[in-house]
Simulated assay, not measured.
Amino acid sequence: MKIQLAIISDIHANIVALDEVLADIKKSGATQIYCLGDLVDFAPWGNEVIDRIQEKNIPCLLGNHDQRIAFDEPIIPLPHHDAVETANREIAINLSKKEISSSHKKWLSTLPYNLELTFQVGDRFRKILLVHASLHSNDEYVHESTPKGDLLVDLHRRGIDVLVMGHTHQAYVQRAEEVLFVNCGSVGRSKEKDKKASYVLVTLTEEGIDTTIVKVDYPVEEVAEAIYHSNIPDFYGDFLRAKDK
């Protein structure tokens, strides 16, 4: 017996990438899909992405970008952004605040910050914790190089086997003290060199837990052109087209 989950994150209003990923998941045989949030900002289809997640009845967390739009929170500059990205980010987020429908903002405001799943596979129980960024904050970056000691204390206390995250837009799988740390990367705004959409498959069996990061091609140029023909700063189209950053 096995249970296979597909987990996606960080769509960032890129409906083209999302539809390609959902089609790939359908072929994978996964029986359940979960989303870790950040549905909005940086591409032209924020409302359409929310519609698609709702249509597919995909359980979804509240990402930090969703949180900012849902509750009209201020835009705080990030220390790792230069002046150019900071200015373009403010324009793009303010555009989302204006264009995301009131009904979608209301729906976003109801989403949970995390989701703990417990599955029985044969005689074994497997526990998976889904978060957008980390256990402690919706804005914390947990990279592969980040020390895991503080997180492990909480994960051991809760009996978690797998922690699945997004937020960094960089996928990885790492084992620390029998806990799997999994970042499923980004569907719509990858920060990896290939700029492919990514998601993760988690397969649960009595024997163990297997994780696979899946990369999906999509027409990046089409999305970049749509950005250039919208009110979103060209910065975000240029970012998608750049293969080296």
Rank of each mutant, 00 (worst) to 15 (best):
I69K: 02
Q32K: 11
H80S: 14
D10K: 04
I3W: 14
N47C: 07
D82P: 11
K97E: 14
V16E: 00
I3E: 15
E206M: 02
D72H: 09
L151S: 13
R158Q: 07
N14I: 04
D82L: 07
N94Q: 13
A17S: 07
S198R: 01
S9H: 00
H12C: 00
P74N: 07
S137D: 08
Q170C: 14
E140G: 05
D139R: 13
K148Y: 13
L115A: 07
P219Y: 06
S198V: 13
P147G: 09
F125K: 10
I76P: 10
H65D: 05
R68D: 02
D19H: 05
H143I: 15
G159C: 03
E55T: 08
I25H: 06
Y141I: 15
D194R: 09
N57A: 15
M1V: 08
S9G: 05
T110L: 12
P147M: 09
S96D: 07
I93K: 00
A171K: 00
I53F: 05
E206I: 00
D194N: 12
V220I: 14
E206F: 08
E221R: 12
R189P: 09
G122P: 01
G185A: 14
I232D: 10
H169C: 07
L204I: 00
V200E: 09
T205F: 04
N94W: 04
E192M: 12
S28R: 10
P77R: 01
Y141M: 13
A17D: 01
R126G: 04
Y218A: 02
N138P: 03
N114P: 15
D139S: 14
P44M: 15
Q67S: 06
A226E: 00
Q67P: 03
I15P: 13
V40E: 01
Q32S: 08
L39T: 06
F71V: 04
S103Q: 08
R68I: 09
I50T: 07
T86I: 11
V173Q: 08
A92D: 02
S198C: 08
I33Y: 10
D66C: 15
N94F: 03
A87D: 06
L18M: 11
T168S: 00
P233Q: 06
I91Q: 10
A23I: 13
A171G: 10
G63P: 01
T31S: 14
D19Y: 03
V182R: 00
H169K: 06
Y34C: 09
G166V: 12
Q67L: 12
K148V: 15
T203N: 06
D194E: 08
P219C: 04
D72A: 14
Q32W: 05
V21S: 04
T86G: 11
P74E: 02
M1E: 14
G149D: 15
L111I: 00
L95M: 14
